[in-house]
Design a protein around this nucleic acid. Structure first.
Lengths: 212, 212
DNA sequence: GTCTATATTGAGATAGAC
DNA sequence: GTCTATCTCAATATAGAC
């Protein structure tokens, strides 16, 4: 409740952590070693604190994870809600969701990375997985709409399409590293370009030559 | 060295495990809970053995992981080598590598899944990551060749292209479940279709309408 | 090839002083 | 808000019998 409690990520001085400051360091460690392989001891070392100091801010290791996952999930769900609220053609909403998802991935890279690696070992993890499944289901429904509309090819199953799309998008967390705001836009453009138009040169001969 | 040592996965009777039999159960558990979160105790329970019985077959938990990762990596490297040996246009070799990778993913689903989740916590894991990086690098070189050749669009960086492609392909392990041989071919077809031609209906209006 | 111990380490978490 | 010290439990791994 002190004044400095609200500017977590801006305060970079060593001691006197708030939840946000601890969260950032913890998530980075979780992503580097994996959640299970990251001990409270290692976490304490990274923070320059004792283990018990961490327990002053969080009730358990699990609770740290819960906070980080909720942040990522809320952002992704927000993208979906915005697209739904915007209305319009399904194809436009698909476009909006894909671009929005790329931006969330980039802006909340660490937390989303953590989310994508959750296996469902604990109640916290299982709740997160349930929210992810709901998100995936909504995206699949959107793709189905776009197929019915005639704007997306319908020779591939909608759930396969949405899984491949998000497989591509989600894989960004494996290699993308910060670097500015316009990079996220360019990345989103590239993803959309590959997803909608494919990699083949528009002028190149089609099926026969490449796949023959 | 007994006769039954060579038919591991075919022998389904409970006791009298060989390395292969233990490996399969272990990898399944590693994928379900995550490697670090899977204890030798849980593994023993699943095998219907005591912990010490496992140590008769493997020197350590790490060695079990090493075997599984090597199997997946060797298969993927084999795909690359075959494509290189086949020669021909870069575009054809890209196609061959993508299809081959999908088939390896499907045929060695469990081991590849494990490989894709390795974080680099131990020497074994770091060696596996190094082999993965070498594979990725070779694929990127292949994409560059195809771009220079004029068969793949060159407005997107080759390393981004290969990362998005393999992001899409690798994500298959998250949802694909057995189900027959032709499924793998159909899946490979779908991946190639999305990757090369994109999702947009060939007849639909292009950039202006969808992205406007 | 498997078992019942057991050694040993490190984990998550708590108590209570400052 | 942080510390030292400690509890408790579960982990990997080993010893040695059958």
């Amino acid at each position: 409740m002190r004044a400095m409690s609200d500017n977590g990520s801006l305060r970079r001085g060593r001691p006197g952590y708030d939840q946000q400051g601890i969260l950032e360091v913890a998530v980075a460690a979780f992503n580097q070693y994996g959640y299970d392989a990251t001990s409270m001891g290692v976490l304490a070392d990274r923070l320059g604190l004792s283990k018990s100091a961490i327990y002053h801010h969080f009730a358990s290791k699990d609770e740290i994870l819960e906070r980080a996952l909720d942040d990522a999930l809320s952002a992704l769900e927000g993208v979906l809600n915005e697209a739904d609220a915007a209305g319009g053609r399904a194809a436009d909403r698909v476009d909006q969701v894909l671009r929005g998802a790329v931006h969330v991935l980039v802006s909340k890279l660490a937390n989303v990375t953590l989310l994508l690696r959750v296996r469902g070992n604990t109640e916290v993890e299982r709740r997160a997985l349930a929210r992810r499944r709901a998100f995936d289901k909504a995206v699949t429904a959107l793709v189905e709409e776009a197929q019915a509309e005639g704007t997306l090819r319908s020779d591939i199953d909608a759930s396969v399409v949405s899984r491949l799309l998000f497989g591509m998008i989600n894989s960004i967390v494996e290699w993308y590293r910060p670097g500015g705001r316009e990079d996220a836009d360019k990345l989103a453009d590239d993803v959309i370009a590959v997803a909608l138009d494919g990699l083949r040169m528009p002028t190149a001969n089609r099926v026969e030559e490449l796949l023959g």
